[in-house]
C-alpha cells in the first residue's frame, strides 16, 4: 500500500500533522514516515527484478512448452489448430435424416403392429445372414406375437440339447425359452459365406450404430449407384450412409418382397421402417416400460420438490424471521 502512494503525498501528510500538532517530539516522529516508505519501495524493486530476470522468463517458457507438450501427449491434438486429414468427409458416411419415428416422443410407445411386421421382415430377409442371439422366442410373447404363435415358430427350429441318459446330444424342437437361431454356426462360417465380411448380430445394432434407428433406415433405403469417380470394388455395394461408402451387404429390400399378414403394402420404405422398429425394440425391450416409469418419476419427484420447498419454508420461516429482544435485568445494587 505504502509504495503505491507518491512520496509527495506523504510529505504533505507529514506537514499537515506538523501544523496541527505543536509537539516537536511527535512531529519528528511523523517525519520519519518518509524513511519508512523508502524501505517499502525497495521490496517492490525486488519484485520487479524477479519479473525481469532471465531465469523467470526461461522457466515460464519451459512451463508453457511443457504444458502444451503434455496436452498433446494426452489428447493427440491441440485445440484451435487446424489439422490436415488424409481422409475425406464421405468416409464418415452421410449423416442420416432424423425421421419421425412413432416412438420418438416422451410419451410414445413402440408401434407393436410395426414390430410384428418387422419381425416378419427380419425372419424372411435379414435372418439369412444376421443373427439375433439376445432375443428368445419368449421375448416375442406379449410384444408382437401370442404365446401360441411364438411356440409354433419355436417348434419349427431344431435345437441341440442333451446329453441324454446315454450321453448323446440330440435334436429337439425349440421351446419358448430358446434363443433365436443363428444363420451360421460360428464367425468363421459367417465370414466364409459372405466374402470375408461378418454380418453383425442385430440384437443391439440400433444402439451400437451412430445415428441409431435413423441410420439403419437410411442405410437400408439408401443404396444408389456410385457417383462418378467413385470406384467400388467387385462384390461391394455403394451406400452413401455407410462410413467409407462401400459395404458388402447389397440392397435387400425391394417392393413386395414380403407379404404382410395385416395387409400393409410391403414397399421398401415400409419394410425398412418396420424392421428398424423391430430392431429398435430388440435393442431396447424395456423401452415402453421405461417411458411409463419416466412419466411417473418426473411427476412424483417434481411434486415432491415443490412440497419440500414449501415444507422447508414452513419450518424455517419462523426461525429466520424471529427477533430476539433482550431486556437486561434492572440494576438493583446501584448507589
Amino acid at each position: 500500500m505504502l509504495s503505491r502512494l507518491p512520496s509527495g503525498a506523504l510529505k504533505q501528510a507529514a506537514s499537515a500533522t506538523r501544523l496541527s500538532s505543536p509537539s516537536v517530539v511527535s512531529s519528528s516522529r511523523y517525519a520519519s514516515v518518509r524513511f519508512a516508505s523508502s524501505r517499502a519501495s525497495s521490496s517492490s524493486n525486488a519484485f520487479e527484478s524477479l519479473m525481469n530476470s532471465r531465469l523467470t522468463l526461461a522457466s515460464a517458457t519451459l512451463f508453457t512448452a511443457g504444458t502444451v507438450a503434455w496436452y498433446a501427449h494426452l489428447y493427440g491434438t491441440l485445440p484451435f489448430i487446424g489439422e490436415a486429414h488424409a481422409s475425406h468427409l464421405s468416409d464418415e458416411g452421410l449423416h442420416p435424416v432424423a425421421y419421425p419415428w412413432p416412438h420418438n416422443g416422451f410419451f410414445d410407445s413402440f408401434d407393436h403392429a410395426s414390430i410384428r411386421r418387422g419381425y416378419q421382415v427380419y425372419r424372411e430377409v435379414c435372418a439369412a445372414c444376421h443373427s439375433l442371439d439376445r432375443i428368445a422366442w419368449r421375448n416375442l410373447v406379449g410384444v408382437s406375437h401370442t404365446a401360441d404363435e411364438a411356440r409354433v415358430m419355436a417348434e419349427e427350429v431344431e435345437y441341440q440339447d442333451g446329453p441324454n441318459d446315454d450321453g448323446e446330444m440330440f435334436q429337439r424342437p425349440g421351446k419358448l425359452a430358446d434363443y433365436m437361431p443363428a444363420p451360421y454356426p460360428n464367425e468363421e462360417a459367417a465370414r466364409a459365406g459372405n466374402a470375408g465380411a461378418l454380418p453383425p448380430d442385430l440384437s443391439l445394432i440400433v444402439k451400437a450404430r451412430h445415428g441409431g434407428a435413423d441410420y439403419i433406415f437410411s442405410l437400408l433405403t439408401g443404396y444408389v449407384d456410385p457417383p462418378a469417380g467413385v470406384e467400388v470394388r467387385e462384390g461391394m455395394n455403394y451406400n452413401p450412409y455407410f462410413p467409407g461408402g462401400a459395404l458388402s451387404m447389397a440392397r435387400v429390400l425391394f417392393d413386395g418382397l414380403v407379404e404382410y399378414d395385416d395387409g400393409t403394402p410391403a414397399t421398401t420404405s415400409q419394410m425398412a421402417k418396420d424392421v428398424v422398429t423391430f430392431l429398435n425394440w430388440a435393442a431396447e425391450p424395456e423401452h415402453d416400460e421405461r417411458k411409463k416409469t419416466g412419466i411417473k418419476a418426473v411427476i412424483l419427484f417434481s411434486t415432491l420438490f415443490v412440497l419440500s420447498v414449501y415444507t422447508k419454508r414452513f419450518k424455517w420461516g419462523p426461525i429466520k424471521n424471529r427477533k430476539i429482544q433482550y431486556n437486561p435485568p434492572a440494576d438493583k445494587t446501584g448507589h
Binding site: L2, L10, A13, T17, S20, S21, P22, S23, S26, R29, Y30, S32, V33, A36
Partner: peptide, 13 residues
C-alpha cells in the same frame, strides 16, 4: 528501536 505508523492520529487532536 523505532516504530512508526503513519496512520496514528495525534491524541491531542
Amino acid at each position: 528501536f523505532t516504530k512508526t505508523y503513519t496512520t496514528a492520529p495525534s491524541p491531542r487532536v
